[in-house]
């Protein structure tokens, strides 16, 4: 495809990707600053902020809470959102168009206004200060991401495929798991990532309904806003980047081994 303007495409895409990773060139050094405020290290590096991250009980519990809340709320949002998007796609009526639009509602209303409502609601249900409460609130506000991305990836799925599967005797659940879902995995994964990040970064809802029983990572990050931002937050970002890099390398390694075996076996 070289003659398709492939070189230009690659250069442009490369530049844009460079723009995306640019802040990391600040974030990594900052995580090694010897100062107790966010700054580029001058006169020596220090691992103290990485140490904080892995030894300070407050940071550890904040990370644990955030991982738990984000994982569970993402699982909920993914399950409900994917099912809803598939159902709407398959039924395809004016009514389901409305359902789909309604699902995006949590994205449109400023979070703080929802926080007022959910606070009052949770006072009645006695869910203030509970992890369950935060998980549910993050799940429902994560729904739009899932519905939007899954819908976009369903759009290119040929409904004939689904009909064919059924005419071959597949039940609806079989059609779903064997035909539809495998074809929209990229959309489901994207939606999952968005929903996860939504919860991972979410501050306002947690502040309103978390009480003092919960103290998530975003709360820790914003905690120093009156004095100094703790460079540990740069260490968190760096650690996450390294973690995804490790996942990527393992995945690529496994893939190479599989390809190697496949080549050998044939």
């Amino acid at each position: 495809m070289a003659q398709d303007g492939g070189a230009l495409r690659r250069v442009l895409a490369g530049l844009i990707l460079a723009f995306l990773v640019l802040p990391a060139f600040v974030v990594f050094p900052v995580s090694l600053t010897p100062n107790r405020y966010l700054s580029l290290p001058s006169g020596g590096v220090s691992w103290q902020h990485w140490q904080t991250l892995f030894t300070d009980p407050v940071w550890l519990s904040g990370i644990r809470e955030s991982v738990l809340i984000a994982s569970l709320s993402t699982a909920l949002a993914l399950a409900a959102g994917t099912a809803c998007a598939i159902g709407c796609w398959r039924l395809g009526s004016r009514l389901t168009d409305m359902v789909r639009s309604a699902m995006i509602l949590p994205l449109m209303i400023p979070t703080i206004v929802y926080a007022l409502g959910i606070y009052r609601f949770y006072v009645e249900l006695d869910l203030i200060g509970t992890m369950l409460g935060v998980i549910l609130a993050h799940a429902v506000t994560g729904l739009p991401y899932v519905v939007l991305t899954v819908t976009a990836s369903l759009a290119n799925l040929d409904p004939a495929l689904e009909r064919a599967a059924r005419s071959l005797g597949a039940s609806v659940p079989q059609t779903l798991t064997r035909v539809i879902v495998p074809n929209i995995i990229p959309g489901i994964l994207s939606g999952g990532i968005f929903a996860f990040i939504h919860s991972w970064d979410e501050l306002i809802i947690v502040i309103f309904i978390g009480g003092r029983e919960l103290f998530t990572l975003p709360q820790l990050i914003w905690d120093g806003i009156n004095e100094n931002l703790d460079p540990a937050i740069a260490a968190v970002a760096s650690a996450l980047i390294l973690f995804t890099l490790a996942v990527l390398l393992v995945e690529l390694g496994l893939r190479r081994r599989r390809q190697f075996r496949a080549a050998r076996d044939t």
Partner: peptide, 20 residues
């Protein structure tokens, strides 16, 4: 397929629209 809409709708109506 209609049933597949239910979980998301219940979440949205119960935990978003109603409190809002």
């Amino acid at each position: 397929y209609v049933l597949m809409l239910a979980p998301a709708l219940v979440l949205l109506l119960g935990l978003y629209v109603l409190p809002l």
